[in-house]
Design a protein around this nucleic acid. Structure first.
Lengths: 201, 201
DNA sequence: TTAAATATCGACTGATTAGTCAATCTATTA
DNA sequence: TAATAGATTGACTAATCAGTCGATATTTAA
């Protein structure tokens, strides 16, 4: 019933299937069951629609992640929740996850103000700071940690996609152990080898 | 002087900056210094241009990687070369690397025949098989190994981009050790802990 | 040299599309 | 009830753009 939401939902589906170019605003309006002019009542331009859809989706994921945080969790447990919640959300909302990448590798990303983008990574950066302060995480630049975890999530997500549903959770669990081994502080894994020493084999 | 190449070069620059939609064929022709009709003499449609540019770029990278292979190299050394060559190529050819992702997250990818895509990953799959057969690599599905390495390369590449040039090679080297620790067989790292055991801490 | 094939040109077109606008409808509020 | 504000409509337009085409130039081959 909410026409604005209907437009966003329809735009998501069409953009993912046909791309930005291949999706006329007229088709979005038609498929959403609203008049042409109604679309431009809510979104001044097509570009605005593309950007607001992106921000809406990112906020949705961030809110879910925020709702999962529990102050009493250990760092590892908190990290595990972020990791699992993200991948499982991506598996359930494949269109939305794909759309984030689609915008990310398009000139539209540059149109989104840096402060909006920063707002969305703030939560993750804060968690990284906390994790590092706890000593459970290897000393490395925030940027590196953030990027490594993100790309690991992307990789495991893509792998999970190729798997039968009943094996997905196992894969994700294994992926978690891998990334945790990669980033956790040496003394916190029994018998583990610090990165610095492994270089001098 | 080669107009076909000039068109491809110009298209790459414009597609990366303005996207597929934001780049009219007329502008590509104009910037490339050829007539409108000349573009369509070499590329029947805009879609063809987009696809052939993608295949050309992928082939360029694959040829460079192929030229680096040396049968006498150890698995680790061969893997290191593939990893370094890819990231350094990406740092030098940022537009081309970005364009690959741009196509990857667009409906144009679906227009590229599966056999063409398969041909391009063949080399990597073959290397993975060889590495696994050598026993130096942990037992895991090809798909997983391929995806993990790819995403690690993406992650380290993106991190290297944020770094001053003189520190990039160090970061890439550290990234290599990380991914190698992640995928190499337990007995081949001194004092390392197999993944299976580290789960039962 | 001639003929055929290929490359290049750029004006043109038919179709498409983002965005407008004046009119109508619906809800809110005084 | 009356008045105001916001929501909705869909026909319309001005502009753009992918692709065509006939003419001309250049290369290749016989």
């Amino acid at each position: 019933m909410d026409k604005e939401k209907k437009i966003l939902d329809t735009a998501l589906k069409l953009f993912v299937e046909f791309g930005f170019h291949g999706t006329p605003t007229s088709k979005i309006a038609k498929d959403a069951g609203v008049a042409n002019g109604t679309l431009f009542h809510y979104f001044a331009t097509k570009e605005t629609l593309i950007k607001e859809l992106y921000v809406t989706i990112k906020n949705e994921l961030n809110q879910i992640l925020a709702s999962q945080t529990n102050p009493t969790d250990s760092i590892k447990e908190a990290f595990r929740k972020l990791y699992f919640t993200t991948i499982n959300w991506a598996l359930i909302n494949q269109d939305k996850f794909y759309y984030i990448q689609q915008v990310h590798f398009s000139p539209h990303l540059a149109q989104i103000p840096a402060e909006v983008l920063h707002e969305q990574s703030k939560m993750h950066i804060a968690f990284i700071e906390k994790a590092k302060a706890s000593g459970e995480i290897k000393i490395m630049p925030n940027e590196l940690l953030y990027t490594l975890v993100n790309s690991q999530i992307m990789g495991i997500y893509q792998y999970a996609l190729t798997q039968p549903t009943d094996q997905q959770q196992d894969s994700i669990e294994q992926g978690f152990e891998m990334i945790w081994d990669l980033i956790c502080s040496p003394q916190s894994i029994a018998g583990g080898v610090p990165l610095q020493e492994s270089k001098s084999i």
